[in-house]
Simulated assay, not measured.
Amino acid sequence: MKRRAAVIGLGHQALEDHLPGLLASNRAELVAVCDRDPDTLRAQLDTHHVPGFTRAADLLDDVAPDFVIVAVPHHAGRAVIEECAVRGVHAPRSSGPPSGTAGRPSSTPRGRAGGGGIGDGGWERGPGGPRLAAVGGVPGCPRRARRGGGE
């Protein structure tokens, strides 16, 4: 069973790493995207043919994804994670995939707030480049990204 995934924040990191990783996954399907810039959002809607939102709360209420990848600037991340937690939606905060280094886990601490798992996302480097290796608390997904020779 594929998990329903959304991406909140459509900057460089999301376009170059998160979206390609989700689209290549056999465990997750992209069901929605969100960005506060309507032009950026429109470009991705034309490409991915999924619902788009300019407010994270609207995406979460209308689509109810199993998890979201939060790829927003640091100053905005906490508010988005809190919106997810209130609704029980898993939300690994992206610290970005490895750039020429071994995988590293998300910088957001693990925990529970309002019934939603927070943090514990991670990346794994493989032959095809970086890919999402962990989604905090989502059944069927590894809990940690592999590091170097594996953890």
Rank of each mutant, 00 (worst) to 15 (best):
V7E: 04
D35E: 06
L45F: 00
V89M: 04
G111W: 08
V68Q: 02
E29M: 10
H74V: 14
P73H: 07
L45D: 00
C141L: 14
G150Y: 06
R78G: 11
S95L: 12
I81F: 05
V80N: 12
D39A: 15
G77I: 02
V138C: 11
G137E: 09
V7T: 08
C84Q: 03
L41P: 08
G52A: 05
G119K: 03
S95G: 15
R87N: 04
L22P: 01
R110Q: 09
R125I: 13
D46W: 04
G140V: 08
L30P: 05
H90N: 04
M1N: 04
V80M: 09
A14S: 14
G140T: 05
G136W: 01
D39I: 08
H74G: 01
A5T: 01
I118Y: 01
A56R: 04
N26A: 14
I69H: 02
L41Y: 05
P98C: 11
R42G: 01
V33M: 09
V33C: 10
P98R: 06
G129A: 10
G149N: 10
L19S: 01
A113E: 11
G103Q: 06
G122D: 05
P109G: 04
I118P: 00
G103K: 01
L15E: 14
A6K: 03
R147A: 10
A71T: 10
Q44D: 01
P109L: 13
R146V: 12
P38N: 03
G111C: 08
G129Q: 10
M1E: 04
G117W: 11
Q44A: 10
G122Y: 03
L30M: 11
R104S: 11
D37L: 07
A113Q: 12
A102E: 09
G117I: 02
R78K: 14
R143W: 12
R144Q: 10
E124W: 10
T54R: 11
N26F: 00
A57N: 08
D66K: 01
S95Q: 13
R146W: 11
L22V: 09
L10I: 14
C141A: 11
E82N: 02
G149L: 14
E82S: 06
